[in-house]
Amino acid sequence: MILVLNAGSSSLKVEVFDLQLTSVLSGSVTNIGTSGTLSVGGRKQEIETASHAHALSAMLAALNENGVGLEKLSAAAHRVVHGGTLLTEPAQVTPQVISAIENVTPLAPLHNSHNLAGILALQEAAPELPQYCSFGTAFHATNPDVAVRYAIPQTQHDAGIRRYGFHGLSYANMVAEFGEALPSRLLALHLGNGASLCAIKDGKSIATSMGYSPLSGLTMGTRSGDIDGAAVLRMSKALGEDETDRMLNKNSGLKALAGDNNMKTLLERDDEDAAFAVEHFCYWAARHAGSAIVAMGGVDAVAFTGGIGENAAPVREKIVEHLSCFGSFDVHVIAADEEKAIARDALSLIEAGQ
């Protein structure tokens, strides 16, 4: 079996797959560092954990009680949000890979350090277990230079200021789920509290809406999406850097427009603010979609994934209506499953003898 781990700032999520990539068991630990909940196989218990290592130890014990002991694991695989420009393929964890993850942590300080904490905690708990990692930015490494380069001085580009793109594991899973039926020019939309889209041509990402960070692009649940840099500078001068960061990432998007970032709730409301927030979300998704379609030279199919993409039919219908000017195309809904994509990456490396 393969154990997939997703370590967040205060949480640990796991899912176990067999070697046919069928999910066997899943679980989570919440509120690491204080009182939280340990959940495995639908059973929950209150737990206090002091660190990711402590949370992992409790999780491994719970998995063992549910018939998945360490001796049954072929490997562990991790989600790492940012791989920078060097980590563009799934990789087995080595000292060199750990060092590379540490080096790009400044590009994703809220994520990579916690992802790495999960890797190091498992190394300590099970030093003989092979570990692999998949990177959320890697799928977009095939974007051409013209798509990733900001028109800024070379010194800043060399310092890492460029478009990276995110949600890559979700898009990779989408491509795998299509298999041989994959359309040549696929407009893929991952719509959830975080939202992005990707132009996938012949199975490769050639453009995506998120850039240097997950803040840019579409209107999102609590993120603003694209905003003029001059406006950010003005707000930063007035509010300070930290408060501006908090506002744009935590208190903008649907939350700012209608006081709520839950799309289901907004669709159920009948007030003007809710209607405007939904329209804003759909309009800007379609605006960015037009750009992606230009990058592909047309569109053969549109696919939706993510919590909103899979469950909010009115949102899908409105976006497709906006895109009707591009002619006819097939529309698909694909279940998001980043964990399966990570397990698939690890299995491929295992089978390749890496």
Rank of each mutant, 00 (worst) to 15 (best):
A159Q: 15
C133N: 03
R223S: 07
I161E: 02
N193A: 15
D202W: 07
P144T: 00
I152H: 01
F135W: 05
A207W: 13
L182W: 02
S216Y: 04
A147W: 04
S213D: 03
H140V: 10
S196K: 05
L182C: 14
G194Y: 11
I161K: 00
Q131M: 14
V175S: 07
G168P: 12
G165L: 07
P144I: 06
A207E: 15
G179N: 06
I206K: 02
L197C: 14
M174C: 12
Q131H: 07
E177N: 04
D202Y: 07
E180S: 11
H140T: 09
V175F: 04
S209H: 07
D158R: 10
S170M: 00
S205M: 12
Y132A: 01
R223G: 06
H157F: 14
G221T: 13
H167R: 05
K204C: 08
G221R: 01
V148D: 09
A207K: 10
P183T: 06
R162F: 08
A141E: 14
S184V: 12
S134M: 01
L169E: 06
M174S: 14
H140R: 05
A141M: 07
D202L: 01
A151E: 12
G179L: 04
H140C: 03
Y164E: 13
P214K: 07
Q131F: 02
R185F: 02
R163M: 05
L182Y: 00
V146R: 00
